[in-house]
Amino acid sequence: MTKVVDRKPLTFYERTYLPTLLEGLKVTARHFMRSVKGGNAALQLGDGYYPEVPWQVAEGYRGAPYLVRDQDGNTKCVSCQLCEFVCPPKAIRITPPGADGVPADRPNAEKMPREFEINMLRCIFCGLCQEVCPEEAIFLQKHYSLTGLTREEMIYDKERLLQLGGVHAGIQKWKHKLEEAREQDTFPVKTD
């Protein structure tokens, strides 16, 4: 269903560019005066400016993505590689365990990444990895200023991401599944 929007022709006065010009003057002058009076946020840091006094991010701010652990200290990521697939700048790189690797060091889900790297030079903090993650294992956190002296230093590996990410208490679906399976001791055939 198309909606036709009436586009009014500009009046002569508007076509002289004067109204927009005056509006621009007003806006810029207002901001200028506010800044000069010291009323703008950038100047209101108290003890100093940004690098010395870090900017306090707002609630819900989405910065760098890090991996998280569950409340039992287990890696939540199961190496499904959906974030790697969805990542627009191809910043994420996951090495799956492979046939010969150790699948998982935890009792729940039988798969976890052998290596998980995020190239923070490429990352654009878009949040698609968090959006797509079926395990709630990666979250955009509050860090926004990441620096390093080499390119290699800016590729964060699994250990670092997990350490920076901390713990995120979730529903632990794999754990509940395992508990549910253990309760069902009635399965007639023991295969192993």
Binding site: T28, H31, F32, R34, S35, V36, N40, A41, A42, L43, Y49
Partner: peptide, 13 residues
Amino acid sequence: KLSALIQDRVGPN
């Protein structure tokens, strides 16, 4: 400096 003030920034300091 002027652009910074107009855009609510600090400018070279």
